[in-house]
Design a protein around this nucleic acid. Structure first.
Lengths: 222, 222
DNA sequence: GTACGTTTAAAACAAATGTTTATAATTTAA
DNA sequence: TTAAATTATAAACATTTGTTTTAAACGTAC
């Protein structure tokens, strides 16, 4: 057995199980038995379950950030000081997101993991992602800022997260939704088809008219 | 001690802890100790942890569906055969969602629970919600259909879920986002303020131009 | 081939989990 | 007031969890 075969097999199995059932609901014994690997191997190679979770993310996010940085480099060079249009930015991001997991297991797993990273407690994960990959997001949102000068900063911040919510929520719950869509509308939808559907919606969301100024600020509900 | 005091105290504590940490990450001992109630009380009053989770949801969703049905009754009567405009439908739904938890703990908890119901495994919960509250959603989406006749059925289906994703994702992760927004833009945002921000975005998303017809269907990625 | 660092293996550990049981306390009704 | 039903309590139960330990197998360089 090659030296890193165990590590790879653990990661391959873990990412699928995590995506299917969440982090807390997936035991190391489930992972190791399905991967046909000894239980202690996880702690030996990764140190702890937390580190394993982080390693699963790193295997997607490391190549993604690297590629996305060069994509942004290319764009900045091509537009040479000119403002990069919003749709170009969004399209390139989508394309990069699609490319990275294409070689590996599946995009579905990746998006589901991203959704979990948001929704599950796992404070250590949020910290890890923020710390290791926060800079790419900063660079991207700075470009988005130049592309949407008409938006107030706070408004753009919220809309980016609105859009992020749409994408992650949809793609991470894709399986269930796809089943319904296929049953009710007899239509098989691929991930790429979904992204074609998302594009006009996302662009329209970012370019929606500004909300009316809030005159009263006597908000009560927390 | 009043007879149902224990039940109420368990529910009050459980919903907060569930919303903070998720279902699997919240132990019955944590709930009962914080609620100053005996551990066995949960199994005595609710039967199991799963049933407790369902009861937490029922306490929000039962009054919501009841109210929303009468709201829809009123609307149908007021528009008497005429098509109810999309914005009216969305506004009324938002208002109903806001009203129900206003009297109780907080809207934040409710939305966070909804987000968890989607993202956590908890197959029993999805089944429970579908079975008990599926009819309201059916009625609502049928009205949305009449309000957006220009949308193909499948497209409307997906856009409704896009929008649902935005709202649940944003409101369920509200705390973290609000902290950032307040720190970076020095702006305190209330839930109602957020909904004012969401309204134009949601409407724009639903009315976005249709995606181009997909000519090639040779999708590869799963 | 021997010695040494690395990896795998089986077993055991300590802690935490949901649930059940047996008993005590309390409320309810007659 | 007393008998019965309901609710609260403490303890124990049986699993499951992540982690550690100890020893065996493996590979590699001298």
């Amino acid at each position: 057995m090659a030296q890193n075969d165990t590590v790879t097999r653990i990661l391959d199995t873990a990412e699928v199980l995590f995506a299917e059932r969440g982090f807390a609901e997936t035991s190391l014994r489930h992972i190791t038995s399905k991967a046909r690997v000894n239980l202690a191997a996880v702690n030996y190679h990764f140190g702890s379950k937390k580190s394993l979770i982080q390693a699963v993310f790193a295997r997607y996010l490391d190549p993604f950030t690297e590629r996305f940085h060069t994509v942004l480099d290319d764009l900045e060079q091509r537009y040479a000081g000119e403002v990069i249009p919003l749709e170009v930015l969004l399209d390139n991001m989508a394309r990069t997101v699609l490319e990275v997991p294409a070689e590996r297991n599946s995009l579905k797993v990746f998006m589901r993991l991203l959704g979990l990273a948001y929704s599950q407690a796992q404070g250590h994960l949020r910290r890890y992602i923020q710390e290791h990959y926060g800079s790419v997001f900063s660079r991207f949102s700075s470009l988005v800022r130049q592309a949407t000068p008409e938006l107030p900063d706070a408004e753009r911040f919220w809309r980016l997260h609105f859009v992020l919510g749409t994408v992650i929520f949809t793609l991470s719950g894709l399986d269930a939704l796809r089943d319904i869509a296929e049953k009710d509308y007899g239509e098989h939808v691929s991930v790429r088809g979904l992204i074609d559907r998302l594009r006009p919606v996302v662009v329209a969301a970012m370019q929606a008219p500004l909300p009316p100024l809030e005159t009263d600020n006597l908000s009560t509900a927390s």
